[in-house]
Simulated scan of single mutants.
Amino acid sequence: MTPDAVAPHRRYDATPETVEALIRHRLATALGGWRGSVETALPTVVFVAIWTWRRDIALAAGAALGIALVLAAVRVVQRSSLTHVLGAVLATGIAAFFAVRSGRAEAAFLPGILTNAAYLAGTLLSIATRWPAVGFLVGAGDPRAQEDPFGWRRDRGMVRVCSRLTWVLVGVYAVRLLIMVPLYLAAEVAWLGAAKIALGWPLWVASLAVMGWMLVAGHTPLEPGAGPGAVEEEADGAPEDEPA
């Protein structure tokens, strides 16, 4: 009789051996690529370019919203995911409303500043309550997310690592606010546009690089049942696993 026939065990298909390896796998599944960043940045480029050229807030806002809608239409024609481009359309629409309503071009950047302030507060709160924001990204990459969206929280090592990674996000939002708020108060529209682009995808890539270094350097053991595609097999008459 083999050992597998005596004791209950779990089988994993290509299961990472550490929490860090699993998080790398999940983040790769959950995050978008370069196209989403272009779709987010292009309306800002158009807004700043038109405003700098014509000093017409309504024209600049309309052009930015128009290019966002064109990008969404391209996605529809190609039958590809609308997740990122719809976010860009919504953000552009809100920014255009703020700019036109106030009559100040710099007001187009106020929603983004307020959003980053909210994210900063939210990520700090998530760490304090031991529901780290990165954990939700990890959970989104779990193929069993619909059945068990918060399964990642049962692994204490996963929570610890995700908390450390969430501090990187705290740094991202803090840097954005430290740069964007003074530019907004000074009404530096061109610099606000450049900063928004530079602090978008490039800063996000840099933060992912920091996270990647942290994940490569760490070797937190993965608790049983936390890997992707786990299949539990129990022998007849064998006791069930104790809850974590």
Rank of each mutant, 00 (worst) to 15 (best):
L203N: 08
G157S: 14
R154C: 13
L90K: 03
F98C: 13
R176F: 03
V175R: 04
R176S: 02
W201L: 09
P132E: 01
A105M: 09
A118D: 11
S207H: 05
T166I: 04
L185R: 15
I179H: 07
I94L: 12
Y173L: 08
R130F: 15
G103L: 15
F150P: 02
L192Y: 10
Y184Q: 11
S207R: 00
E147Y: 09
I127Q: 03
L178K: 07
G200E: 00
E106A: 11
P132T: 03
L137S: 02
W201G: 01
Q146I: 11
Y173C: 07
P182G: 11
F97N: 05
R153N: 04
A206Q: 05
F98V: 10
A187M: 14
V205P: 05
G139V: 03
N116V: 02
V210E: 01
A190K: 08
N116E: 03
K196T: 13
L114N: 13
V172G: 02
L110D: 03
A209E: 09
L178G: 15
R156C: 14
V100M: 09
V175S: 05
C162L: 08
I127G: 01
V100E: 14
G157I: 10
F97E: 09
D155H: 05
R101C: 08
L178T: 15
W204Y: 15
V189I: 12
A118C: 13
N116S: 09
L125S: 07
E147L: 12
A121D: 04
R130H: 15
I94R: 04
P143K: 01
